[in-house]
Simulated assay, not measured.
Amino acid sequence: NVWKLIDSRASEETACKYAYISGRILEEGYGETDGTPKTKEAVAAYTRVLSGNSSLYYKVCAIERMNIVDKTYVTDILCSGGTEKTFTEDKDSQVLLAGYAAYGFPQKIYPQWLKDRTVLSMDANIQASRFLNECGKFDSSYSVQSLRVAARTKTSWSGKIPYELLELNFPRFYSNFVEAACAENKISEPVLYALIRSESFFDAKAGSSAGARGLTQLMPSTAADEARKLKLPADYNILDPQTNIRLGSHYFANLIERSENKSILSALFAYNAGLTNVRRWKRPPKMSMDLFLETLPFQETREYGRKLVGAAAMYGFLYYEITPAQTVRELFK
């Protein structure tokens, strides 16, 4: 009953999370209802997720549970959620931002956007992100800025969003390197794009406080091990996009091979928390992977798994004619 009790009191994201988990608890036979058929109660819970402004992860999981495959219907779900955002629009700020783009000053777009983003319309946000995306073909720093604009716009907007904003949120930067790495290591392109997006936001110069480097956020010691396996020159550059993607994808493919039942999702957990920890987290034989994810002892890894599943589902849907339901089922096998 918790999801119903908190529905009007908790945040949209929390309410939808509880609704999804409640539906799954009923489906798996871990809970009882007040007499309403369990299937009907579970459908009501998933419908709440799909109609609300929930996180992408719970939306794609609910799509899978409801077996929604129609592209138009899926698009409508992914582009909607919550109440329309209300704000005071500043026309002068929008004209200034558009002027920088029209006269070819990409270096001024992102700083100005950061200053004025709360008074910009959806169209103005998309135009800024689109322009920076185009400029990223010549300077990758603009690609990162484009993604940041798109991501913050989508996160802060509660109403219906244009399809283009979904594409700007899940770009395929470094596509030639990703395609080659996936072919070499026999891994899924949507999953590798999702991994890179989640690890570095496509920032080739990204570095973590722990020392991880580059697009796939490899620790130098891990990169060195993979470089030896691939017989790379001793002077390889870990920050070179092509090299980093090749090393990271090779490491990820190895984690899949070493994971129980060659589970892609377990390999993703291991990429974040280490294979030793994942092997220590014993999944009860009959527990589904989505409920197992909710029990992981590391909050960072739980959230990491959610981000990867959601992003992989989006990449599959936007570019590979793979429904979110198919991606979720593949990752939860």
Score class of each variant (00 low, 15 high):
residue 286 K to T: 14
residue 14 T to S: 15
residue 133 N to W: 09
residue 46 Y to G: 03
residue 268 L to G: 07
residue 161 I to Y: 06
residue 299 Q to C: 14
residue 7 D to T: 15
residue 328 V to E: 07
residue 194 A to E: 00
residue 160 K to C: 00
residue 245 I to L: 08
residue 92 D to M: 14
residue 285 P to D: 13
residue 51 S to C: 13
residue 175 S to N: 06
residue 24 R to M: 13
residue 124 A to W: 01
residue 245 I to N: 05
residue 276 T to L: 13
residue 65 R to P: 06
residue 95 V to S: 11
residue 249 S to E: 06
residue 252 F to W: 12
residue 192 L to K: 03
residue 182 C to W: 05
residue 204 A to T: 03
residue 281 W to P: 05
residue 51 S to G: 13
residue 154 K to S: 14
residue 216 T to D: 10
residue 33 T to N: 08
residue 154 K to N: 13
residue 38 K to N: 07
residue 118 T to E: 15
residue 226 E to F: 05
residue 218 L to R: 07
residue 317 F to E: 10
residue 261 N to A: 15
residue 296 L to R: 06
residue 166 L to Q: 03
residue 212 A to T: 04
residue 90 D to V: 00
residue 314 M to Q: 02
residue 102 A to P: 03
residue 177 F to E: 03
residue 271 Y to S: 06
residue 250 H to I: 13
residue 255 L to S: 05
residue 45 A to I: 08
residue 5 L to I: 15
residue 232 L to Y: 05
residue 270 A to F: 05
residue 252 F to S: 09
residue 113 W to H: 12
residue 246 R to I: 09
residue 74 V to R: 03
residue 5 L to R: 15
residue 144 V to A: 07
residue 132 L to A: 00
residue 124 A to F: 00
residue 220 P to G: 07
residue 146 S to A: 01
residue 318 L to T: 00
residue 176 N to P: 09
residue 40 K to D: 14
residue 82 G to S: 06
residue 100 Y to Q: 11
residue 284 P to R: 11
residue 78 L to K: 07
residue 228 R to K: 15
residue 85 K to F: 05
residue 181 A to I: 09
residue 19 A to R: 01
residue 41 E to W: 07
residue 247 L to C: 12
residue 127 Q to Y: 01
residue 312 A to W: 02
residue 265 L to E: 03
residue 270 A to W: 01
residue 33 T to G: 06
residue 49 V to W: 00
residue 273 A to S: 05
residue 99 G to M: 05
residue 157 W to H: 04
residue 148 R to Q: 15
residue 262 K to I: 05
residue 317 F to V: 06
residue 35 G to W: 00
residue 141 S to L: 09
residue 257 E to G: 14
residue 100 Y to A: 12
residue 232 L to W: 07
residue 164 E to D: 09
residue 129 S to P: 04
residue 139 D to Q: 02
residue 143 S to A: 07
residue 38 K to V: 04
residue 266 S to N: 14
residue 161 I to G: 03
residue 1 N to A: 14
residue 309 V to F: 02
residue 12 E to W: 10
residue 48 R to P: 06
residue 16 C to R: 10
residue 175 S to M: 06
residue 67 N to T: 08
residue 4 K to M: 10
residue 203 D to M: 03
residue 50 L to R: 04
residue 195 L to M: 10
residue 67 N to I: 06
residue 288 S to H: 11
residue 92 D to R: 14
residue 100 Y to K: 09
residue 211 G to E: 07
residue 6 I to E: 08
residue 43 V to M: 13
residue 317 F to R: 10
residue 90 D to E: 09
residue 271 Y to G: 05
residue 239 L to W: 12
residue 158 S to Y: 11
residue 45 A to K: 01
residue 73 Y to D: 13
residue 80 S to Q: 02
residue 309 V to G: 01
residue 274 G to P: 01
residue 120 L to M: 10
residue 183 A to C: 15
residue 68 I to T: 11
residue 157 W to V: 00
residue 11 S to N: 08
residue 132 L to T: 02
residue 171 P to F: 01
residue 324 P to G: 03
residue 327 T to M: 12
residue 57 Y to C: 09
residue 110 Y to G: 02
